[in-house]
Simulated scan of single mutants.
Amino acid sequence: MTPNAECAGMHESVNEASEKMARLGVGALPICGDDDRLKGMITDRDIVVKVLAQGKDPKSCLVEELAQGKPVTIGADDDAMQVLRTMADHKIRRLPVIDGKRLAGIVTLADVARAMPNNRVGDLLEALSTR
């Protein structure tokens, strides 16, 4: 897990979030509300597909417009097998880790690959690759 994940604020512009992604060298950021609770995730793909391709201005479009539905998360005490199941079931590569009601960090596919035996990683990659 990557602890202390930096968030994109709900009221930040998509442009500000994309600059933060570039500075941090990441392709996704958790979206946090004023209460520091997770509201969703914003990815580089979201920015391209839901903002740029739709002709929206990333400087005036707010991150909260991309926080749709309830984000898929994992608990801080959940084991590695639960991480694998959740990623595979939801076909996601980044999984916010929640401790109580607060964001504790992010588990990425790369984190899993470094920590798990090769056969489990292969199973996960196969599950994520089939659509």
Results as ranks from 00 to 15, higher is better:
residue 1 M to D: 14
residue 2 T to N: 12
residue 3 P to H: 15
residue 5 A to G: 07
residue 7 C to G: 03
residue 8 A to L: 01
residue 8 A to N: 04
residue 9 G to W: 13
residue 9 G to Q: 14
residue 11 H to E: 13
residue 12 E to F: 06
residue 14 V to K: 01
residue 16 E to W: 06
residue 17 A to K: 02
residue 18 S to M: 08
residue 18 S to Q: 12
residue 19 E to N: 15
residue 22 A to N: 07
residue 24 L to T: 03
residue 25 G to N: 08
residue 26 V to S: 00
residue 27 G to T: 04
residue 28 A to V: 02
residue 32 C to T: 08
residue 33 G to A: 13
residue 34 D to F: 09
residue 36 D to S: 11
residue 40 G to W: 04
residue 40 G to T: 12
residue 42 I to M: 05
residue 43 T to I: 07
residue 43 T to W: 01
residue 44 D to M: 02
residue 44 D to H: 04
residue 46 D to P: 08
residue 46 D to Y: 00
residue 46 D to W: 12
residue 47 I to P: 03
residue 49 V to R: 07
residue 49 V to D: 03
residue 50 K to Q: 15
residue 55 G to A: 02
residue 56 K to I: 01
residue 57 D to W: 04
residue 60 S to M: 07
residue 61 C to D: 14
residue 67 A to S: 05
residue 76 A to K: 00
residue 77 D to W: 12
residue 79 D to I: 13
residue 82 Q to I: 15
residue 83 V to A: 14
residue 84 L to K: 03
residue 84 L to I: 07
residue 86 T to Y: 13
residue 86 T to M: 15
residue 89 D to L: 10
residue 90 H to K: 09
residue 90 H to L: 07
residue 92 I to M: 03
residue 94 R to A: 05
residue 94 R to S: 12
residue 97 V to I: 03
residue 99 D to I: 00
residue 100 G to Q: 04
residue 100 G to R: 00
residue 102 R to M: 08
residue 103 L to Q: 05
residue 104 A to V: 07
residue 104 A to E: 09
residue 106 I to M: 15
residue 106 I to W: 00
residue 107 V to P: 04
residue 109 L to F: 05
residue 110 A to M: 12
residue 111 D to F: 10
residue 112 V to A: 11
residue 117 P to K: 13
residue 118 N to Q: 11
residue 118 N to W: 00
residue 119 N to I: 09
residue 120 R to C: 12
residue 121 V to P: 03
residue 121 V to Y: 06
residue 125 L to N: 05
residue 126 E to C: 07
residue 127 A to P: 01
residue 129 S to I: 06
residue 130 T to A: 13
residue 131 R to D: 15
